[in-house]
Design a binder for these strands. Structure first.
Lengths: 242, 242
DNA sequence: CCAGTTCATATAGCGTTGCTATAGGTGCTA
DNA sequence: TAGCACCTATAGCAACGCTATATGAACTGG
């Protein structure tokens, strides 16, 4: 059995690796399996991809395109926080639909080495959170919010993948998701406003202004002024609130 | 160099494996390295531990004792939710102090196979949450709460481990922790009365920030900084630019 | 139309991995 | 002292990631 379309060997290697990975059930996939299924010998693999990790990176890159497509393909609802919610669900669905690929993407953790894909996913979420920040719905700087939400999102997805399929309880995901979104949303700040000096609304406004200024370069301030202004904004918006 | 105490070979293997693992920096540790450092040959390892995974399980079991000790050793504060908070922090600290061991314990995820240690950690947290539930401080069944919190806890810890040590920001942990604990606590004073216009622009945000800053003086900026800051805010907020 | 160059694939094999079939030594009990 | 578990060592297998080297194919300049 081999993948003998008229595709070039490089594409056959990619396809073979993806297929074997998807059916590996979590156990390792050897280069010999891949090259045999692709109908190719070892040096071809290393010629095109450098090493095994390079090949898997390429598979992951293709998988990430699917991931991004899923994260973007729904129409923005006009309610950024609702979009974040769907982003979370889409992330979990992606992980459960292709667990092995997901594990290569997000489960292959090593100390002090951050996979590029995590940064990409984080940027994607930060981008979405920026919209929420601009409309004053965020309690926390988008960057920190994105990191925090993504960390919880990955944690939940990994936990679900580790469970046996019939026992996977998506309530775990929904509950954690809502907890995280509520925590970064400005709703919470409002509910706490009674016993507060009102500083939290300062923070929310500062975060919104910060996001908006960076999105559309204002010509009201010179570049040097803007730089200093943004630095102060950052100090305000990262100050503790609550 | 070898571990040549008068310890029996089994203990020497355990010690050698733990030491090599701790210094591996995330890369794989071979049985040959371990047996050589222990001053023993291969069959000895397999006689005592069955296979490599068995040896690592034994190392993990020892590490888990440390983990449990850390999770239990603080006196119960009488405020169960506060204890959960410290449990979370202790979990993160454990992960950051021994990243490689932590990765073997919690980062070695495979589809449909739940490591026993995760169940143990979950039981530990559920036990603590039970106390909160008894005193009516819980919004959610302890079991679900434990799963959810642990998932987020692991997610955050993995994310922090993946970062370069100097860049690790524990705010990420604190924020996620509080979000999760608040979400399962009964103290939620929900106010779903947010009817935001969602139309905030730079100008609107600047006006809001301006007003808020004057109402309650922020201590993030010096008075001279604040004066200039407010002047710039005025320039922005009086512009007709969106 | 051919020589030269570059790209792509194959043959064969190196060093390392986890693991084991087999045998030998050691100490206890009968 | 004989027998018997228990423990450890010698030697080596199959599979792994990877590569030095060689061969073929396709394009390019003269």
């Amino acid at each position: 059995m081999s993948i003998d379309g008229q595709l070039p060997p490089k594409a056959r290697l990619l396809r073979a690796a993806a297929e074997l990975l998807a059916n590996s059930g979590g156990s390792a996939v050897s280069t010999r399996q891949i090259t045999q299924l692709a109908g190719v010998t070892a040096p071809t693999l290393y010629h095109h991809f450098g090493d095994k990790e390079g090949l898997f990176d390429a598979v992951v890159a293709a998988g990430f395109d699917d991931y991004v497509a899923g994260e973007r393909d729904f129409a923005p609802s006009g309610q950024p926080l609702e979009d974040i919610r769907r982003m979370w669900d889409n992330h979990v669905q992606f992980g459960l639909k292709q667990p092995e690929l997901y594990l290569v993407m997000f489960g292959n953790i090593r100390p002090e080495s951050r996979p590029a894909i995590v940064a990409d996913a984080e940027a994607l979420m930060e981008e979405m959170l920026n919209k929420a920040a601009v409309s004053g719905q965020l309690n926390v700087p988008p960057k920190e919010a994105a990191r925090s939400i993504l960390a919880a999102n990955v944690g939940v997805t990994l936990m679900l993948i580790a469970e046996k399929a019939p026992a996977r309880n998506l309530e775990l995901s929904a509950m954690t998701r809502d907890a995280m979104i509520f925590a970064v949303s400005a709703e919470q700040a409002r509910s706490n406003e009674s016993d507060d000096t009102g500083k939290s609304s300062v923070v929310v406004a500062a975060i919104a202004l910060n996001a908006a200024l960076q999105a559309s370069h204002s010509d009201q301030l010179s570049s040097s002024e803007l730089k200093l202004f943004l630095e102060w904004l950052h100090r305000i918006s990262t100050s503790s609130n609550s």
